[in-house]
Design a protein around this nucleic acid. Sequence first.
DNA 1: CTGTATCCGTACTGATACTG
DNA 2: CAGTATCAGTACGGATACAG
Lengths: 133, 133
Amino acid sequence: MEVKPDVGACDGPVAVHAREILGRVGDKWSLYVIAHLGTETKRFTELKKEIEGISQRMLTVTLRGLERDGLVSRTVYPVMPPRVDYALTPLGRTLLDAVGTLVTWVETHLGEVIESRARYDARAREEAALAAR
Amino acid sequence: MEVKPDVGACDGPVAVHAREILGRVGDKWSLYVIAHLGTETKRFTELKKEIEGISQRMLTVTLRGLERDGLVSRTVYPVMPPRVDYALTPLGRTLLDAVGTLVTWVETHLGEVIESRARYDARAREEAALAAR
DNA sequence: CTGTATCCGTACTGATACTG
DNA sequence: CAGTATCAGTACGGATACAG
């Protein structure tokens, strides 16, 4: 796929709003929620269990944001105990490709990034030691 | 492309570190810097001018982070006035696809997201007004 | 079960001023 | 030109308690 090297270089409406959208998609949890939902329908507690480390609050906040943006649908069943289903909307499902690409990239190149960090930090420590003299 | 619906569902090392990597890639500015660099080499000020709204500090911080992760190379020319060139490394260039997919998605679906937000907010206001009685 | 409300520490951010 | 240093405001994120 061809990459557009000049996102936002033009100052049209797209550039103006692009950041807040990426802010949603790129925030700490949204990508995880989207990836975990995939094409399935899941309940609140299912997501909570599967997405390791997310707090109840953050899951709620993230789901609300995604719902507001039309990426996730929320279905409440008025039963006791309550039951709420979440699923990607058609719009949300169009994001799966992009998310999948990113996730695959991370899985593929994670090792290289970690090694690069280690090298960088080692070099930084050396230079700091040198400068101390 | 096939999406893996269960990122992090397994609790291996990938799941452990995936978030910090996505944290780098998905932070407020990294995607912009990567997209703007593309396959070109650019100077600090060029990037500063092209990426609307970024502060000098944040551009520095972002570039340092990307350099640490091995995604961006930094070349200093010891001349007066100083000149520093930035470019994507081969590793960084492998990210262009993923970034491009996301950027394209945003450009394509931005309108739908904004409309959805407007609808959601309008509905929320109605319900708030109803509840006030 | 699926939330909401609140508190509180921290990390991020931008503005500003200064340097080689 | 290309940074670094500092500081103050804010938004975020987690823990906890409580409710429908």
